[in-house]
Simulated scan of single mutants.
Amino acid sequence: MSTPYVDHPLQPGDQAPNMVLDAISREGKIALDDFRGRSPLLIGLFRGLHCPFCRRHVAAMAQLNPALREKGVESLAVVNTPVERARLYFRYHPIPDLLAASDPVRALHRAFGLPIIEFTENETDWPYKVGMDEVMTMRVDRPEELPEPMDPATAGDLLSKKDGYEITEADQQMRIPGHMQLVGHFLLDREGVVRWSFTEVEGEGRNVCRALKPEELMAAASQVAHK
């Protein structure tokens, strides 16, 4: 199946593509068209579970899922992790009632316009290249887990040590040396049209590894639910 590609993240008013992925949280497949005409859908597009930030953002999505469902909004988390590896992880780190799917080839990320960024020494052309000098000025703030705001690399190392997450061969295969998949959330209405988004592309890197603001998502979900 050919993968549609756009060179920038889908914006409000854009039609989301259909894609069929392997389900993690149950057997079989999950298609975006399954929701079309039935309910609004929040899609979280994440890096592989080897990313400590993504593991936390998936868990946060699971926590928001009941409140979204009360508004009639379904949720789907998509990870760049092979399906069996992902199933093993979620067996020990449950995400109750949250639909999840595996996309190891990053097809949906490309279709939603989320690029893979290249790390350079000091050349930045956001969101395609970023210099490590620029990365070191970025700050991730997780007061409940980090002693202070830190650059993404240092914060990620600290969180990984805290988690004790074991990197397997399947995880290694998902890594892109010298590069990183940018990620984000997209809220679709019943017809599959994007109505709200939060991505790492926006803000010239200020959103990298950051969580979305639940109040902004819930406000957007309330508007979508009433249309």
Results as ranks from 00 to 15, higher is better:
Arg210Gly: 02
Phe90Gly: 00
Leu182Asp: 05
Asn122Ser: 15
Cys209His: 14
Met1Lys: 09
Thr199Cys: 09
Glu191Gln: 15
Met218Gln: 12
Gln181Val: 02
Glu134Trp: 12
Pro214Phe: 11
His185Ile: 00
His226Asp: 11
Glu84Phe: 11
Ile30Arg: 06
Val201Ala: 06
Val6Tyr: 05
Lys161Thr: 11
Ala221Glu: 06
Val130Ile: 15
Arg139Met: 07
Ala16Arg: 09
Asp125Asn: 13
Gly37Tyr: 09
Val78Tyr: 10
Gln223Met: 08
Met1Cys: 09
Asp7Asn: 13
Ala31Asp: 13
His226Cys: 02
Thr154Tyr: 01
Pro82Phe: 04
Glu70Pro: 02
Ile95Val: 15
Val135Gly: 06
Ala155Thr: 06
Ala77Val: 02
Gln223Trp: 05
Glu118Tyr: 02
Lys227Tyr: 11
Pro149Asn: 04
Val130Leu: 06
Pro4Leu: 02
Pro66Lys: 07
Pro115Asp: 07
His50Gln: 03
Glu204Leu: 14
Leu21Met: 14
Val105Ile: 09
Gln172Lys: 14
Ala153Gln: 13
Pro12Val: 03
Asn122Val: 03
Lys71Gln: 14
Met61Tyr: 05
Tyr5Glu: 14
Asp103Tyr: 11
Phe90Asp: 01
Asn65Val: 03
Val78Phe: 05
Ile167Cys: 00
Met150Leu: 15
His8Trp: 04
Ala225Arg: 01
Asp189Phe: 09
Ala219Lys: 15
Met150Trp: 12
Val79Phe: 08
Val83Gln: 07
Tyr165Ala: 01
Glu166Arg: 14
Val183Met: 12
Phe53Leu: 09
Tyr128Lys: 14
Val183Leu: 11
Leu114Lys: 09
Glu134Asp: 15
Gly28Gln: 04
Gly13Ser: 08
Ala77Cys: 02
Glu148Phe: 13
Gly48Phe: 09
Asn122His: 14
Arg142Cys: 05
Ile43Phe: 01
Ala107Pro: 05
Leu99Phe: 10
Leu32Asn: 03
Val194Thr: 06
Met174Lys: 02
Ile167Pro: 01
Ile43Gly: 02
Gln63His: 08
Leu188Tyr: 12
Val140Leu: 12
Met174Cys: 13
Asn207Trp: 10
Gln223Glu: 15
Pro66Gly: 07
Gly203Ile: 04
Ala107Ser: 15
Glu191Ala: 11
Leu108Glu: 04
Glu134Val: 10
Lys129Trp: 05
Met136Ser: 11
Phe119Leu: 13
